[in-house]
Each structure stands twice: as structure tokens, then as C-alpha cells.
């Protein structure tokens, strides 16, 4: 029984042989080239006008930590507003009632069609339009007192997000087979119950990856609220560099925190995806 052993028809027996490892020399070359480029960029920054000591000093400064906390609070709350609005508007958009459909389409058109920063500025400056706001005879207040940076940012970011999320939700609901809705009707479910129990849970599976995307976008979009004095991390970093002129150092600090938060969010999204993949696990693999 040597290598000379042959199978029927004179073919050699290859079942005992091993497959040689491929060299992949092109991969090694490109990797080496990339390392060289990165090293050059790193060296340029190391020798540039950056006081790394300042980066280290402010990385965990109290004002910066408060800023990133405010960023996260705003991102979570505004996203919650956006998701609730998005679900409601998507349901309206797909309803047989033409009034609801038009209202939903109008909302999406308005809030998606104007820049977010403009919407934030409008909410913050609402007092210029309505000096006092309230319900006639019941309650009223000065608009400047109500429209704090926090509330303006929440309304601006949340309403804008709702317009985008509604389209994501609508796509998710449309991805569910029409037979599912018929089966729900056949066991006596009304439209809203069928949506809540049957359609939306299945839509979630499709919707989570784009929603994760939207949430990461929201974390960074909160930085726009710096223009209306909301004390999120970029706003606080700016305040520090207005005082000490260490512009790049503090921008690096803020950038570090954004990157860290986004890095933590990605595995969280995977957990959520697994939760909503019930009944489809063996298909997803």
C-alpha cells in the first residue's frame, strides 16, 4: 500500500494526502504597505503640534464625563421619541384611511425635507414666534422658560428621527408576507391587534440593523445640539478650548468618547438581533 496504489479506472488514491497551505503573498504585501502608511501618519501626528498630555488630562475630566452622559441621555430619549413616532406614523401611512395617510406623508415630508440644525434652531427660538405658549384658560408660560436647550434638542432630534424611523418601520412591515395578515384576520384579529401581535414582531427582525444604524447616527447628531447650548460632550469640549485654546486636543477627547460609545453599541445590537430572530435561527445561520 504505497503512493502507487490506484483506484478503479487507474485514478490515484488521494484520500490520504494533505492539502498544502497557500502562500497568500499578495495579502502579506498589502498588509505591510498599509502598516507603513499608518506608521507614517502616526509619526506625523506624534511630531505635530499636539500636546498629548492635555488629551490625557481632559479625557476623564468631570465636564467631559458630564458631557458624554448628557449625550447618551439625549440620544436614548430622542431615539425613544423617534421610534414611538416612527411606529405610529408607519401604521398611519399604511392605513386604509386617506386622512391618516396624508398626515403621515406630510409629517415625513416636512421633517425629512429640512436640515436638522435648522429644526433645532427653530425649536430653540420658538419664543420669537410665540412669546407665551399654553392652553388658553388652563395653563400658560413664557416660551423662553419652556424651550430649554434640553427640550428643544429633544423635540428637534426626536421629531426628525421619527420621520426617518417611520420609513424604516414601514419597510419592515411591508417585508412581512401578506398571508400573515390574512391568517391573523382569519382568527378574528382586528388591524391594530394583528399589527401589534403578528406583523410588528416579525418586522423587528428586519428593522433592527437599520435602526442600529439610525441610533449610531443619533449619538453623533446630538453634537448638533451644541449650537443651542445643550451641554453635550462636544459643547463642553468647545467651552474648554475657548478658555485654554487646546482645540485639537479637546476635539480628540470628544472623538475618543464618540468612538467608544459606538463601539459598545455594536455588540448590543447583535444581542437584540438574536432576541428577535426567534423561530428563524436555523435559517439565519
Amino acid at each position: 500500500m504505497t503512493a502507487a496504489h490506484t483506484l478503479a479506472g487507474g485514478f490515484p488514491d488521494i484520500s490520504k494526502m494533505t492539502v498544502a497551505r497557500q502562500a497568500h503573498w499578495r495579502r502579506w504585501l498589502t498588509a505591510a504597505a498599509i502598516v507603513v502608511v499608518l506608521a507614517a501618519i502616526g509619526r506625523a501626528f506624534a511630531g505635530g503640534q499636539i500636546e498629548w498630555a492635555y488629551v490625557g488630562r481632559f479625557l476623564a475630566a468631570k465636564v467631559i464625563l458630564e458631557g458624554i452622559a448628557n449625550t447618551m441621555v439625549m440620544a436614548v430619549l430622542a431615539m425613544a421619541v423617534g421610534i414611538v413616532l416612527g411606529v405610529v406614523v408607519a401604521i398611519m401611512r399604511l392605513s386604509p384611511n386617506p386622512v391618516l395617510t396624508s398626515v403621515a406623508a406630510g409629517y415625513t415630508w416636512l421633517f425629512r425635507g429640512t436640515p436638522l440644525i435648522l429644526q433645532l434652531l427653530l425649536w430653540f427660538n420658538l419664543a420669537l414666534v410665540f412669546p407665551t405658549i399654553g392652553i388658553p384658560g388652563l395653563w400658560s408660560a413664557r416660551a423662553v422658560d419652556v424651550m430649554t436647550p434640553f427640550l428643544s434638542a429633544l423635540l428637534g432630534l426626536g421629531l426628525n428621527q421619527g420621520a426617518y424611523t417611520s420609513e424604516v418601520m414601514r419597510a419592515g412591515m411591508l417585508s412581512v408576507d401578506a398571508g400573515q395578515y390574512e391568517a391573523a384576520q382569519a382568527i378574528g384579529m382586528g388591524r391594530l391587534r394583528a399589527l401589534r401581535r403578528i406583523i410588528l414582531p416579525q418586522a423587528m427582525r428586519v428593522v433592527i440593523p437599520p435602526l442600529g444604524n439610525e441610533f449610531i447616527g443619533m449619538v453623533k447628531a446630538t453634537s448638533l445640539a451644541s449650537v443651542i447650548q445643550y451641554p453635550e460632550v462636544l459643547h463642553n469640549a468647545e467651552n474648554i478650548y475657548y478658555a485654554n485654546s487646546r482645540v485639537i486636543e479637546l476635539l480628540i477627547v470628544a472623538g475618543f468618547w464618540y468612538l467608544l460609545v459606538v463601539s459598545i453599541l455594536t455588540p448590543l445590537q447583535m444581542l437584540l438581533e438574536r432576541r428577535f430572530a426567534r423561530g428563524a435561527l436555523q435559517l439565519a445561520r
Binding site: 408576507d177 398571508g179 400573515q180 390574512e182 391568517a183 391573523a184 384576520q185 382569519a186 382568527i187 378574528g188 384579529m189 382586528g190 403578528i198 414582531p201 416579525q202 427582525r205 428577535f276 426567534r278 423561530g279 428563524a280
Partner: peptide, 19 residues
């Protein structure tokens, strides 16, 4: 919906709720 409760429907493509 109330009238539908008197009938049970079995579909060609089953239409079970996959979740």
C-alpha cells in the same frame, strides 16, 4: 372580525406565525 370567528380558515401556504 366577530363574524369571522364562526369560520376557520386553512391556507394553501399554511401562514403559521413564524415567531
Amino acid at each position: 372580525a366577530r363574524q369571522r370567528l364562526k369560520t376557520g380558515m386553512v391556507f394553501q401556504r399554511f401562514n403559521l406565525f413564524p415567531h
